[in-house]
Write a protein that binds this DNA or RNA. Structure first.
Lengths: 345, 345
DNA sequence: GCTAAAATCGAAAACGTTTTCGTTATAAAA
DNA sequence: TTTTATAACGAAAACGTTTTCGATTTTAGC
């Protein structure tokens, strides 16, 4: 019942462990004949190298860690899929951890992955993360680290992102182009760089078009598990306080869908009364009523790209040719749907 | 730059590696004083046990494997979340693989996890899986295996499921109760046990209520990436061939939402013309229009339960007290929403 | 047949732990 | 004081690989 080892194969063939090991790895100093014998016996005995021993010897585990704020999330699950499938292609396994938007948990999980001695770490930051010692420790250990989506500019590692500012600018400009004059913004939490950038893009679009920027039109959503409810709540607040708003750029589709639901309930017509642009292009956004104009955020590609970058860095460090951190920006796209429509003049 | 080892601590304190190891693990045969010294130095040096070496010694990795047909999926991502968070509590890490509904891939991935020597495996079967040798090999290696959701009855391992037959029966009965006389069924792929059971539940409900079972009213969806489109397509076919249908029980909300969209487009009124019951209770189902009556399938709980069972078996095998496989059935619930309504008499 | 080169193999160390079992030092019992 | 028990420590083996380097054998060249 014990798993078969090199030693057993060696004994059965009356050769040394060394030769068996070399034969299996096609070393040039093993004869064709013995290679054949070894490989055959290995197959019939269903030999599997003991990963624990291999890891110990080679000091690598062919495993990477992934920390993500939420798993049940259209964008992030696409990222996971991109990472996992790309990693598998390169012979890497992925350990997934969910930080639940908590800095404390995130810190513990980094520690866990470091203890596990994964070959590299992929992370999208929790909203609450404002201290980066845990990330710098990863780098200090010469362990490749790639951040994606929710990043910290200050940490000197590679990053895969979209141009949030530009995307938000385009979304807002679209609202302006169709004739909106008073545009609100439901932004994400205060700390994450991407929600800051999206806010800045919104603001810049307003100013570039000589529209006044009114801070009271900016509502905050934590974008945690309660996104949908936050959207509803903020839509309600908006109706109470600013009945003159005719367009909203909403960070994250789920919040937008919450708002949309609330507007539908209250009899506010979308897009006639208020036009809405979301962010992320959740699948859901294409099937609700009205369908949601939004910014497509390429989750799968982002995951794939992030892994590829990590992979490069793992190889580079192995070959002692570390490269400077790289920032990769992926394209986004405005998807026009029913929730925005050219106003009558 | 080298990671610190027991040896280094031992040298610095002028004691043996053995004592250091024992001190860190609170063996009784180490004095309080040395324990204090060792632990302190370990902390200041930021000592982390080398998992590779520990694994090799203890023959366990505190890691489990998870194979899932699709990651980007409301139900399955909830399962993942349940598994990952529960595992973390018990000090286990989770390696995730996606079979993409392919038997070939699933087989390879089982092999990969076996090679990786994970402590146990959690799996939800691919639609295409009809051969179970790969799963039996896991059991033959005395490695705990727990199946969930999409299971194979024939494999002698623990399983976490819902009573698909009963749930489908309840869904169909609900359609009958509100007055539907001619009820169609969009079923899942042919092989998976759960889509078979749901079909059987549908059929039994019809017969128990003296309604004729008409095979031409049963449409098949593979439930892969194309669920939404499959729903649309089948809705179209249904309208062409069976305009007298007044109720549909649809396997998986996503298919149902596709159908709903098609009906909306074609001007078919839901629930007035046709009542619809979905399956799974995706979040989306509560925000589309009309909202979808459905069967709630507890993904998070299922993941959590599956891990707990796996954990028990890992411990049991370690203590050489293996138990018989256990089948755990979780409760489901009919969620009534707008897509079903009592017919006028 | 002899030397040089090439082909083939194996011993042994190393990776960093854990754990058994024996040894020494100390305290208690006689 | 001697014996016995206890407390504290360490040597060494083991886990299964990989890889270096030296040893042996075979082949080629002349």
């Amino acid at each position: 019942m014990k798993p078969v080892t090199l030693k057993e194969i060696a004994e059965q063939l009356n050769i040394s462990i060394t030769t068996v090991s070399k034969a299996l790895k096609d070393y040039p100093d093993v004869s064709k004949k013995t290679k054949g014998l070894v490989k055959e016996l290995a197959k019939t005995l269903n030999y599997r190298p003991n990963t624990f021993a291999v890891n110990l010897r080679t000091k690598e585990s062919k495993t990477i860690g992934l920390i993500i704020p939420v798993i049940v999330h259209h964008f992030f699950s696409n990222v996971i899929k991109g990472i996992v499938s790309q990693a598998e292609k390169k012979g890497y396994l992925v350990i997934i951890l969910q930080s639940n938007e908590s800095y404390e948990l995130e810190k513990k999980q980094i520690d866990l992955l470091l203890s596990q001695r994964v070959d590299g770490i992929l992370i999208s930051l929790a909203n609450g993360t404002a201290n980066f010692n845990h990330l710098n420790e990863v780098l200090a250990q010469d362990k490749p680290l790639v951040m994606f989506d929710k990043i910290a500019k200050i940490v000197k590692c590679s990053k895969v992102i979209i141009d949030d500012r530009k995307a938000a600018y385009i979304a807002t400009q679209h609202l302006i182009d169709i004739g909106c004059k008073r545009i609100a913004h439901f932004r994400g939490a205060l700390l994450p760089q991407n929600s800051i950038d999206r806010f800045l893009g919104y603001k810049k679009a307003l100013l570039d078009n000589d529209l006044p920027y009114d801070p009271s039109l900016v509502y905050i959503c934590e974008c945690g598990d309660m996104s949908f409810e936050e959207g509803k709540k903020n839509a309600q607040l908006l109706l109470e306080d600013h009945s003159d708003v005719d367009g909203i750029f909403i960070n994250t589709d789920l919040v937008a869908i919450g708002a949309l639901t609330e507007f539908n309930n209250q009899g506010v017509k979308i897009p006639e009364d208020i036009s809405i642009v979301g962010f992320s292009n959740w699948f859901m956004s294409s099937v609700i009523s009205p369908t949601l104009t939004t910014i497509d955020q390429p989750g799968y590609l982002m995951g794939k790209t992030a892994f590829k970058q990590l992979y490069k860095e793992i190889k580079a460090i192995k070959n002692k040719t570390p490269k400077a951190p790289k920032i990769i920006t992926l394209d986004t796209e405005l998807i026009e749907r029913e929730s925005t429509k050219q106003h009558q003049i």
